[in-house]
């Protein structure tokens, strides 16, 4: 196969569009779990995840009782 063809194939595999990337939800859950386990009592307080488009990608804000605990930036 020629390099141009391979490049095209690679580009297709790495396609990034407006939709959220595959595995995005699991990533948020894993990350939230990692962040919160230890100091967040489940069932107590309000956990909010806010998804923010950044132009280049997405960021997720994790809020506990409306207080921002962490920003996750996602490509």
């Amino acid at each position: 196969m020629k390099a141009a063809e391979l490049t095209m194939k690679m580009q297709q595999t790495l396609v990034r569009d407006k939709s959220l990337p595959e595995g995005f939800g699991k990533m948020i859950l894993d990350e939230t779990d990692r962040l919160l386990s230890g100091f967040f009592e489940y069932g107590k307080g309000d956990l909010t995840l806010r998804l923010i488009p950044t132009g280049r990608g997405w960021a997720v804000e994790i809020l506990l009782d409306a207080v921002r605990v962490k920003n996750l930036k996602l490509l």
């Binding site: 391979l6 194939k9 690679m10 595999t13 790495l14 990337p21 595995g23 990533m27 990350e31 996750l72 930036k73 996602l74 490509l75």
Partner: peptide, 17 residues
């Protein structure tokens, strides 16, 4: 290789968290 590039790309995205 395509498969390695694909996995590396996922890893890069994961790293951004």
């Amino acid at each position: 290789h395509l498969s390695a590039v694909k996995d590396a790309d996922r890893t890069a995205r994961l790293l951004s968290t």
